[in-house]
Amino acid sequence: MYSVRLFAVRHSRFFEALYNFVNPAILATLRGITRVFGKKLDAPITAAEAGLKGLLFDCQMCGNCALSKTGMSCPMNCPKTIRNGPCGGVRANGMCEVKPEMRCVWVAAWDGASRMKDGDAIKSVEFAVDHRDKGRSTWLKLAREDMKQDN
């Protein structure tokens, strides 16, 4: 939802702290679930991630989540899906060139990042998304990467 998305950017510092606090627990739980159930619970877990992140950030489930590096503003809401924005078309009032009724996702991102503890993460270059991951859970991906490293 647009208004919730703007709220998340305004409170990016809080969401960053929340993420840093709960993320290890979520990943640990998912590692446990994966060990016991394999891939059987992937669908409900993915749906839960899509529901929660969809509500808060208008998450598009690209499967390559970068929210912590983009000021809590999801780059996939950019009509050009730019991962290193903004483009040069931003309107003088900070609104999107393509959707004049929407605040530029990347103006929001730099704004959100300026309030975050680790806001400088936005300055690192992100490569394009892996389109095979579309619709998949980033949480499960991270949990399984952790497990691979542990093994």
């Binding site: 050009k80 991962r83 060139e97």
Partner: peptide, 24 residues
Amino acid sequence: LTGDDVGAGDHPEAKPVFDLDSIS
């Protein structure tokens, strides 16, 4: 370049690709 959106041109019905952005 990332490029202008398709909506700016004479074929607004075209599929925008944007697989990469200018930096990628």
